[in-house]
Design a protein around this nucleic acid. Sequence first.
DNA 1: CCAAAAGTGTTAGCGTTACACCCATGT
DNA 2: ACATGGGTGTAACGCTAACACTTTTGG
Lengths: 225, 225
Amino acid sequence: MQTAVLKEVTIDNVIFGLDGNKLQILLVKHAIGESKGSWGLPGGRIGMNQDIDAAAAAALYDLTGARDLYLEQFRAFGRVDRARERVLTIAYYALVRPESCAIAPGESAEAVAWFDIKDVPPLIFDHREILDFGLAFLRHKIRHEPIGFNLLPDKFTLLQLQELYEGILDVSLDKPNFRRKMTKMNLLVSCNEKQQGVAHRAATLYRFDPAVYESLMEQGFVFVV
Amino acid sequence: MQTAVLKEVTIDNVIFGLDGNKLQILLVKHAIGESKGSWGLPGGRIGMNQDIDAAAAAALYDLTGARDLYLEQFRAFGRVDRARERVLTIAYYALVRPESCAIAPGESAEAVAWFDIKDVPPLIFDHREILDFGLAFLRHKIRHEPIGFNLLPDKFTLLQLQELYEGILDVSLDKPNFRRKMTKMNLLVSCNEKQQGVAHRAATLYRFDPAVYESLMEQGFVFVV
DNA sequence: CCAAAAGTGTTAGCGTTACACCCATGT
DNA sequence: ACATGGGTGTAACGCTAACACTTTTGG
């Protein structure tokens, strides 16, 4: 076995957002280099003295202006690029509230935009594979851990939550049963507050409390949708 | 952001085996370098023109002499080592039948041995974290995909399979219910053969057929233990 | 009043759980 | 005979799926 000398190690972020009940993904159009003019996943490089998670968070901050977003590594991908140099990329997925961040193209991008997950343009390199892998990861994870709330406002209705799952998992759910399932978990905390200015009966607003989840976990509770 | 120049990118393999109903892990004792004399995960480097999966498979082959083992990447880990150089490692886990491979220490190891998962010695670097992560990954995966068979002989009894799950998940299962669950899946193929030379009623031998699993999947079947 | 969404109630059926029990075989 | 594991039966329970129904609100 020989020592590898890599050209570089990069970060690729699969950034998910939600528009109503439609799952969106944030892409950038590259302004320089071999892939100029094509859409791809936003990313960055890993600084020499930087934790890889920190590098991913920094790349995410540069693009969205938001910190403390839900961000998790899901896999490393290797490929040999056009110049026959090995490129290694570590892929993360993030959950973002689109309305609460100020998207700005970085130096090397000429455009940034949200795309419906069902209408993604051709992507550079192996980014389509990375996206598909990240989406599968999200679909699995969101059913087994209460992370979906990161895509919703702090206060949300049960219907919003249901539409989130319907949008991400691409299924339709029975409203009464979904409500019962959620409320029976004792995971959601009522805000004792109602929706405002809607043209129908106002729904109760709920919030997700990580502390409640912690204490339920200690009692052996397992989140499943 | 600055360009990273890594000292190296390595592979770490978390290699699982089964001894009866006890989950085992394969460790090496390092013979050279800063970690001489300590136990750690076996690994290797990534060749320049090598797929990262191939690099992991090669490292596994060097150690076990076996090919085509179950091997899957689960995560990349970054750390800054003693010389303040960044080290990046990509971690894989493998499932092995201990009796069907010839373990041999490579050049840089003075010993190789199986350890009970509940009795692992202190490990170098961040290998304990990697091991824990890999174990959690295995425990999850083995419940949702039929990969456990890679730890058993081709032909096995239902009790062996049950003990596999009990050992890996560290739970005890009800025998009648486990049997029914497995047989009702129609996933296992009877070999029309019985155990030989046992001091009790001989059990039926079964095998796992990937083709059967494929066809069940097409009908929407989902494997869960 | 109507539309739209919030909520509640009810039932059949399925799967899991827990445990009792009989069967076959080598020592 | 007995220990050991193979293998079957069954009843209670809880959860889910499916759908009918009532309630509240703005237009």
